[in-house]
Amino acid sequence: MIKYLILIAVAIILMSLLGGLYRFFKGPSLVDKVVAFDSITVNSLVLIGVMALLTGRAIYFDVPIVYGLLSFLGVIVVARYIQGGL
């Protein structure tokens, strides 16, 4: 029962990944693409966490911690590049 709930959650997260990818392909300006990149990042963070839950090993949960520490770095780098001074 619980396992089916987790599978439904995985399916919904994959669908929202597709929404982010649509904006990534379509986006008229660079900022739109970066917003889509941020959304894809958060979605795949949650996806990694749920995958760690499915496998049930504690060491798998270190990956979203490390990536959660580093994920905002890319967005800040691109935003500073747009503003002109990196």
């Binding site: 919904i12 997260i13 929404g19 649509y22 917003v35 958060v42």
Partner: peptide, 29 residues
């Protein structure tokens, strides 16, 4: 977990539907 993933889905729908960059940043992130 289901509520959180539904909220992620709503964020991505907002990312698709909103008309300009500022509103997309609002709802999407």
């Amino acid at each position: 977990l289901i509520m959180g993933s539904l909220s992620l889905l709503i964020a991505s729908i907002g990312l698709i539907r909103m008309p300009d960059v500022y509103n997309r940043v609002q709802t999407g992130t």
